[in-house]
Amino acid sequence: MSHRPTAALALAAALVLPLVAACVPNDPAASGDATTGGAITVASTGDACDVSTAEAPSGTLTFTVTNEGDDVTEFYLLGEDGLRVVSEVENIGPGLSRDLVVQARPGTYWTACKPGMVGDGIRAEFTVTDSGTEVGPTGDTAEQLAAAEASYVAYVKDQVGALVAGTQEFADAYAAGDDATARDLYAATRVHWERVEPVAESFGDLDPLLDLREADLEDGATWTGWHLVEKDLWQPTPDANGGVTYTPLTPEQRTAAAADIVANTAKLQEQVNDPAFTFEAFQIANGAKELLDEVATGKVTGEEEIWSHTDLWDFQANVDGAHVAYEVLADVVQERDADLADALDERFAELQDLLTAQGSVESGFTSYDDLTDAQVKELAAAVDALSEPLSRLTTTVTGA
């Protein structure tokens, strides 16, 4: 889900965050010296991104990000090119703090805050020096995590392959004006996207091109992707469209919109099938939490699929993706913190029971606008209950 938080979120999004006049350089003399093993503090405001140090030794780094501004913010550690996202933490509300744990090798990086989660980012160069020790796990644990990474990459490739096939079928129906078939295919096809969205976010601007909501569209930007077509398939009344009568897309516009979705999905497949594509264990663990954050900030609120009300398909897919990410790492978690493993197993099962009561991907789900307030609250509470132990997954896996 690519979105801007309303008033009511890699693993990683590869965003182009240009240097801006408001950029606040990192201060190597500030407090929070990572060389002593302490967390690197980040203070995000509406016009500043104050990082407590401009460099740290290679190894496991923890960025403690505090939002001191008035808008929701997010924080990134970007690669040397300023495009590749090593990892990110999203949806940090005013007054709240979140930790981002990464395993960083020596090199040049960029730190970046994005207050309001829209517009230009505020970034500064960040150097990781050579600590002289190997970055990442060693011994038997290294072998376990290498197997986990290979398993997860295979899962991603499988889901993206299914997404490509489903997208083509959906696009053909939509472009041909077969709205009934397109509506039937919409949610079930998007499941494959939602299961691996943190991975998809790591490749350039594919996420906003494919999954941007209308509410998050910046002035003057062109809207493309699934939610543009969603609105055309479930056309709103004037009351639901800002008082304006909705104008359906023309046949030519339909064809172009369908072609854009197919082309950008094909780009995603090219990226995940690249022999160099991989995800490290800490990225998989961060991605599991990011997927649950997606549920909390878009699906539980009913804002993701505002026209079709198919949010429960997305909800289930995000939970599926988070569960798979945990499962490939579960052996290491069990060895290092059996109580955490037990808690995660229990909380995933409790949340799944609530979703199963509303249907399944195969048979269909209850329309989100048909859920009672009590049912929504129960789902939200189960997400919150799972979120706490899942937030400890990365530190457990990395041994931080």
Results as ranks from 00 to 15, higher is better:
G95M: 08
G95P: 11
G95A: 10
G95L: 09
L96F: 08
S97A: 13
S97V: 02
R98Q: 10
D99S: 11
L100H: 02
L100D: 04
L100C: 10
V101K: 07
V101E: 08
Q103F: 09
A104E: 05
A104W: 15
A104K: 06
R105M: 09
R105Q: 11
P106V: 07
G107K: 02
G107F: 00
T108E: 13
T108C: 05
T108A: 12
Y109F: 03
W110I: 06
T111I: 06
C113F: 04
C113R: 03
K114N: 07
K114M: 09
K114A: 00
P115V: 07
G116N: 01
M117W: 00
M117T: 00
M117D: 00
M117E: 07
V118Y: 09
V118T: 12
V118E: 10
D120F: 08
D120N: 09
D120S: 08
D120W: 05
G121C: 04
G121R: 02
I122K: 01
R123D: 05
R123C: 11
R123M: 07
A124Q: 14
A124L: 10
F126Q: 03
F126W: 04
T127Q: 13
D130L: 10
D130C: 08
D130N: 12
S131T: 10
S131K: 07
G132R: 04
T133I: 09
T133K: 14
T133L: 11
T133F: 11
T133S: 14
E134T: 15
E134R: 13
G136E: 03
P137D: 13
P137M: 12
T138G: 02
G139S: 06
G139E: 07
D140R: 11
T141G: 07
T141H: 12
T141W: 11
E143K: 14
E143A: 15
Q144G: 13
Q144F: 11
L145M: 05
L145C: 12
L145T: 01
A147K: 15
A148W: 15
E149S: 15
S151T: 14
S151M: 08
Y152R: 04
Y152L: 05
Y152K: 05
V153Y: 07
A154M: 03
V156K: 15
V156M: 12
K157N: 15
D158M: 13
D158P: 08
D158L: 12
Q159I: 07
V160D: 01
G161P: 06
G161Y: 03
G161Q: 03
A162C: 04
A162T: 08
L163G: 10
V164S: 03
A165T: 15
A165W: 01
A165Q: 14
T167K: 04
T167L: 03
Q168L: 00
E169M: 01
E169A: 08
E169K: 03
E169I: 01
F170Q: 05
F170W: 15
F170G: 04
A173M: 02
A173E: 02
A173W: 00
A173V: 02
A175I: 07
A176M: 02
A176K: 02
D179L: 08
D179Q: 06
D179I: 03
A180G: 04
A180P: 00
T181F: 02
T181N: 11
T181W: 00
T181R: 14
A182Q: 05
A182F: 03
A182W: 04
A182G: 04
R183W: 15
D184T: 09
